[in-house]
């Protein structure tokens, strides 16, 4: 029995890496928002759920392949994020940390239950023409959707990294993250940068939602699962660190996959909450982080 499990281990690891790349993308949005705005967006999961539904309906109604939808859902998510921060969260919170947490909590309740109200609680999945085609690695068959999602997630992570390091916008974002008053003094529109950052963070979810849909399912509560996962990755990698989010995503993806293999599907989920608790208790700054 145990040797059978052991022989499945490489497959489990690869599988974990595939999901890990998407987790990283989700966490990237969260860590970016935290790193610049110093706020915790509790509605992150609910916004991912919204992106999944967007991709779902684009496929069902207009028959657009989810991987093409990335080009639609990502910009739409950006606009949604920018708007909701600029005229919603930013104004209503008065800048207090706990207020923002509670307002985004309220937002997640509204989004989740609106989805329940309009789309019902049923789990939805889609099946693509190439859903069951796979790539032979020798020791395992890798389905095309997983492979595409993996590569596309990595590409987006790299693009984001380039945006942050190579462009003027990235420079402005980093300036605001480091020293918001100083940034204001040199003429950066800080409120605009905040909203842009929030928008980019939500745009990451838009892309992640499109890539998750072909290999996962969507229901109004999908986001809940990802909230804990994303927060775990972010504290693991260090709040605000892009590299940390990527690495953390892979670690959590593999832990979940291998944990499920060794402990069974149900108990396997424990790994994530447990890691989250342990890191927060023993090293709240994460692997790459420097401050809480």
């Amino acid at each position: 029995m145990f040797s059978v499990t052991l022989s499945l281990l490489p497959a489990g690891i690869i599988n974990g890496l595939m999901f890990g790349a998407i987790y990283a993308l989700v966490a990237l949005g969260l860590t970016l928002i935290y790193g610049v705005l110093h706020i915790i967006n509790f509605a992150h999961g609910a916004m991912l759920m919204l992106a999944l539904y967007s991709a779902y309906f684009l496929f069902k109604i207009l028959n657009i392949d989810p991987y093409i939808s990335i080009l639609i859902v990502t910009p739409a998510s950006y606009v949604f994020g920018y708007t909701i921060y600029r005229w919603g969260i930013g104004r209503l919170s008065g800048g207090r940390d706990q207020n923002i947490l509670l307002i985004t909590l309220g937002l997640s309740i509204i989004l989740e239950n609106s989805a329940l109200f309009f789309f019902t609680g049923d789990q939805q999945t889609i099946s693509l023409p190439y859903s069951y085609e796979s790539f032979d690695l020798g020791f395992l068959y890798l389905s095309y959707p997983k492979l595409i999602s993996f590569v596309a997630s990595l590409v987006i992570c790299v693009l984001l990294w380039m945006l942050m390091t190579l462009t003027d916008l990235g420079k402005a974002i980093r300036a605001v993250a480091k020293e918001r008053d100083g940034a204001r003094l040199v003429g950066i529109d800080v409120e605009h940068v905040f909203a842009v950052t929030f928008g980019i963070g939500v745009a990451c979810l838009g892309a992640a939602g499109c890539m998750l849909l072909p290999i996962f399912y969507v229901d109004p509560y999908t986001g809940n699962m990802f909230v804990i996962i994303a927060f775990t990755i972010v504290v693991l990698g260090g709040m605000g660190s892009i590299v940390g989010a990527l690495l953390g995503g892979f670690i959590i993806g593999v832990t979940e996959s291998v944990g499920g293999l060794l402990l069974g599907e149900s108990l396997g989920q424990i790994g994530i909450s447990l890691i989250f608790i342990l890191i927060l208790i023993f090293k709240p700054t994460g692997i790459f982080g420097s401050k809480v």
Binding site: I40, D97, Q98, L101, V227, I228, F231, T232, G264, S266, L267, Q269, I270, S273, L274, F276, I277, L280, I281, F282, P284, V292
Partner: peptide, 26 residues
């Protein structure tokens, strides 16, 4: 004891509740 405050404390209690839910399920 490890000085968790504010949002961090809120999230760690959420994680404990999730952990217990999974345990009770398993």
């Amino acid at each position: 004891r490890s000085g968790l405050r504010g949002s961090y404390f809120a999230l760690i209690t959420l994680a404990f509740a999730e952990l217990l839910r999974v345990l009770a399920n398993s």
